[in-house]
Each structure stands twice: as structure tokens, then as C-alpha cells.
Amino acid sequence: MSPLLDVRDLRVEFATRHGTVTALDGVSLRLEPGETLGVVGESGCGKSITALAIMGLIPMPPGRIAGGSIRLDGEELIGAPERRLRQLRGRDIGMIFQEPMTSLNPVFRVGDQIAEAILLHQDVSRDEARTRALELLRTVGVPDPGQRIDAYPHELSGGLRQRVMIAIAISCQPRLLIADEPTTALDVTVQAQIFDLIRDIQDRLGVAVILITHDMGAIAEMADRVAVMYAGRVVEEGPADAILDSPAHPYTRGLIGCIPAIDPALAALDRLPPLAEIPGVVPPLHLLGQGCAFADRCIEAVDICRKVAPPLTGRGHAVACHLHAAAAASEES
């Protein structure tokens, strides 16, 4: 079976005041139809850049795709004409963003914003598009859709706005849905509802989902496979169960250590605790030198980690870590 999405060795650079910065350094991802791929990592690791690159929405300049390939159903997207990309956006690939409060245009009615996506990609009348928008609002669980279709974004809560965003993203029954931190800005109770909705839609439409998040709990709940990103690279990739049960990269272990206890009292108290258990922060990309980008924060780092960047090795469950490679080698011998 050929993959729905095949990203290979993607490199993205940004021109900044400090010179050229490599935001994505050889990222490879595969996604089968109907599958859910979780992409995890702290902010600044390149998750959102990956999503924007797939959408063809990297601002250029200052951004630049320096190499690699993105294939959707075998069709190369890098270098494809803008006209073709525009067709794919919204029709074959839908996207949900992190900030429902600001992601909808404040001066247009939500119904029109949904209908616009339909009218752009399908040969239907305005009335028909409106009817479809109404159905979509019902599908995404907006109560009283007949009223809400004429509402302006500011008249809706954050959760409802995110539902509208989802309605826009799925309006043309895309094959791929990219959800970039879809619940980060929402209340805990609403977060669960949105995840339920995404899963429900996936079951109904058979759409493949890339779920970008820094929340390992969400990954555990949603993802079939997981790619862990750090400083513009994929450092571990494999089936969700395997990674959650036996994380191989020290960074992944750190992230999983950060899963909040499933403690309803804690959840009700406040937001999820922050991911502060790994000491240090992601280094600024322009300061990355040779070696493993995680080395400075890694308690297990040895000499080689600071000199040579480890490649991503292993089939099925792949890891980019010298220590893991050494351990695996000694096991085999």
C-alpha cells in the first residue's frame, strides 16, 4: 500500500538577523490513509513548520525549502505550482490551528467562512453551500446550528470556534487533516470534547490525521504512530504503543515522564502541569552546532553526543541516539 503522505528528508531554512537558520533538518514522515500520526515536541522544535510546509504555507521569504520531498498520494508538492497547491489546500488537506480565538476572520459570519471553503473547491450554488455549512455545523456538534450559522466569531466560545474551524477543515472531505495543537488554548473539559470530535470525524470520513501536540496524554489517546521532534529533527519514530511503553530516546523518556497523572482532582484543579521536568530549554536554532542537539540537556550524554549528530536508525521503531544504537548493538552481539 502506498502511503498517503510521504515526507522525505525535508529541509527548511529561515533567513534571520543572525543569518540562515535551519528550522527543519532532514525530517521524514509517512502517513497511511486513515492513520493518525502524532507529532510531539516542545515549542520551537519544528512541529508547526512541518505542518506549514506540507500545506505549502511557509512564508517565503524569509523561509525557504532547501531540500527534500513531500508527496501526497505520490504527487510531489515541493515546487508544484501555486494554483495546484491552492486546489489541494482545503480540499485534500484540511488544517486546524492552535488559536481558535484568532483563527476566524472577525468581520465575517461563521457560516460564510465555512461556505467559502466549499464554494472554492466545489461547483455548487451559494444556497447549496449554505445548506452544507449548516450540516457541517451539526456534524461538528455546534448546538442550535440554524442560529449559529449567522453568528460572528466573537459571539461564540473558544470551544465552539474550534468546532467551526474543524467544520471548515473537513468541509470538502479531505484525505488529510492536520491539527496543530488544536486544544492547547481550550479548557480541559473542552479539550476532551474536541479530541472526541476529531476521532469521531476520523471514523466517519476515514481521514488521516496529523496531530501536532506537546501533550503526551493526547498522543496516548489518539495516535497510531508517533514522531518525536527535537530542534528540527525527528529523534524517535514508531508505533504509539511501542514508544509510550518503551521510549528509547532520552528526550522521549523525559516527555513521557511529563504525562500528568490521570488524576481527576488534579485535572479539575487547574490546567495540565507544564512540561518542565526536562532541565534546560530547547537551544535557539542559530546556536546549534555539531552533535546531538539534545546533548546539553541530556543527563546520559557522552563525548560522542557532542561531536556527531546521531542518525535515525531502526525499522518500525526508529531512534536517533548514540546510546540507543550502542545498546542495540551490544544486545545483538
Binding site: M55, R89, G90, L104
Partner: peptide, 10 residues
């Protein structure tokens, strides 16, 4: 953000 949304719609 809503401009990005518009572009993402195609």
C-alpha cells in the same frame, strides 16, 4: 491567524 486560515482553505 485568520489570514493563515484563509490561505489554508485555498
Amino acid at each position: 491567524d485568520y489570514i493563515r486560515t484563509a490561505r489554508a482553505k485555498g
